[in-house]
Amino acid sequence: MVRPDDGREESALRLKLRQLYHGTTPAAQRFQLAILIVDIAIIAFFVVSPVLRDMKSFLWIDYSVAALLTLDIVARIYVASDPMKRLRQLPFLVDIFILVTLLFPESFANWGFLRILRLWTLSYTGMLWRPLERNGLAEWRDTARAVTNLVTFLLVVSGFVYTSFFRSNPGFEGYIDALYVTVATVTTTGFGDIVLPGIWGKTIAIITMLVGISLFVRLAQALFRPTKVFFPCPRCALQRHDPDAVHCKACGELLKIPDYGDS
Rank of each mutant, 00 (worst) to 15 (best):
F46Y: 15
P91R: 05
Q19C: 11
S81F: 10
V217Y: 11
I207L: 05
V2D: 04
I40E: 06
I43Q: 01
C251R: 11
L93D: 09
A245M: 10
A80N: 08
G201Q: 05
R115S: 12
P105I: 09
C248W: 03
K228Y: 15
A34P: 12
T70V: 13
R86P: 02
A34R: 13
D72T: 07
R53H: 09
G190Y: 00
I206A: 02
Y124M: 07
S49P: 05
E173G: 00
S107W: 10
V186P: 07
P226V: 03
R18D: 13
N135W: 07
F172G: 09
T182I: 10
L102E: 03
S214K: 15
D62H: 15
A222N: 04
R3I: 14
V183R: 00
V157L: 09
V186K: 04
N110C: 02
I37D: 00
W111C: 11
A41C: 12
T25S: 15
T24P: 07
Y180K: 13
F31L: 01
L99N: 06
L69G: 02
F160G: 12
F113I: 05
T143V: 09
W120Q: 06
F231Q: 05
L87Q: 01
A146P: 05
P83F: 02
L155R: 06
P91H: 06
F97N: 08
N149I: 09
D82F: 05
I194F: 04
M1T: 04
T163G: 03
A27T: 09
L179E: 12
D262A: 00
T121P: 02
F153R: 10
V186L: 09
D259S: 00
R118A: 14
V100F: 09
V246Y: 01
T25G: 08
Q89G: 12
A205Y: 01
I96E: 02
R134L: 02
Q89H: 15
D82W: 06
A27I: 11
L69E: 10
Q29H: 08
S57T: 08
D142C: 01
P26F: 13
F231C: 07
T24Q: 15
M55K: 13
F31E: 01
F172V: 13
I176F: 14
S158E: 04
G174C: 06
S164T: 15
A178C: 12
L114I: 11
I213V: 15
F31M: 02
L103M: 15
E10H: 12
F231P: 03
L219G: 03
L117Y: 04
T189A: 00
F172Y: 14
Q32I: 04
R115N: 14
N149Q: 15
M84E: 03
L223N: 00
D54E: 12
V2P: 04
I35C: 04
E173P: 00
L68F: 12
I43H: 01
T203V: 00
M84C: 02
R86T: 12
L128N: 07
P50L: 04
V147A: 12
